[in-house]
Amino acid sequence: MKNDKLASGPVGDMQRKRTRRNWLLSAPALVVLAAAASGPLLIVLVYSVLSAGEYGGVVWKFSTDAWFNVVFFRDIFDGTTTLADAHMKILWRSVRLSFMTTLITLTIGFPTAYVIATRPRETRSFWLFLITVPFWTNLLIRTFAILEVIRNEGLINIGLQMLGVIDKPIQMLYTDFAIMVGMTYVYLPLMVLPLYASMERLDFNLVEAAYDLYATRRKVLRRVIIPLVKPGIIAGSILVFIPSLGAFVTPRVLGGGKKMMLGNLIELQFGAGRNWPLGAALSVTLLALVMAALLIYVRSTQSHSGSVR
């Protein structure tokens, strides 16, 4: 550190005292977090290379079976090895549905955030408030609400039947579509909020300048507004993509165990599946995917701020 040469003087003493104070103040929180948030992740990593116990739990014996089983499936009877179709399907569904959810929330969230950001200052906070309320509402309750809307005896089917458009209900529940609608619904505020934050900072002089230089509405949007709020677009996409990837409650309620995502597959291994090492390996896989997404995010924000400075 560049302050090291001051360390011997009274200024350095003050600074060292301060740093010690800061660490002491932070320590209790860090201890709890290490015990009940960060630390256990290491145990998951260890469990992923142990053997499965017969009735759940593990046997303390090194084994790569769990990792092998993430990708491959060995037939118990003839011993042949094939790609684990079920796992691949679930992994692919998780990534695909998360991606679709991100795309849809962006499509809806971008115009919404823009409209809020262009309201007069006094009314803006009201509209923002309306976005925040669902955000702080229980995720399970919001998923239940969607359930009530799309189930066979739900609002949409009843409505369509009363209008005579259909004569028997459309099965929407327990499909990929249901999960996607549910995730879009519960994660939409996570897209709108960062988008709004970057649009609020947008210098509308630049929009005026673009119109002044003969740009059409569409060109103003494409050439000026979208490039300038890109950090918000990236932040919102990451904030939606990451929890979608690890979603558990929404696919469980709306996929009904028929359509699983990674989170449900992990739960299965700790419950009925009784294969804790596999569950741990799948958890590490999910964590790795999330970290990869975060890394891409950090990279893109750094390259952005780097070019601004």
Binding site: D203, N205, L206, A209, Y211, D212, Y214, P227, L228
Partner: peptide, 20 residues
């Protein structure tokens, strides 16, 4: 007439140069 249909251009007080 909207500004993009006027043969008039502006130099803004804060310049409003496109930062990107």
């Amino acid at each position: 007439l909207p500004p993009n249909q006027r043969s008039v251009n502006t130099v803004f007080q804060n310049y409003a140069l496109f930062p990107h």
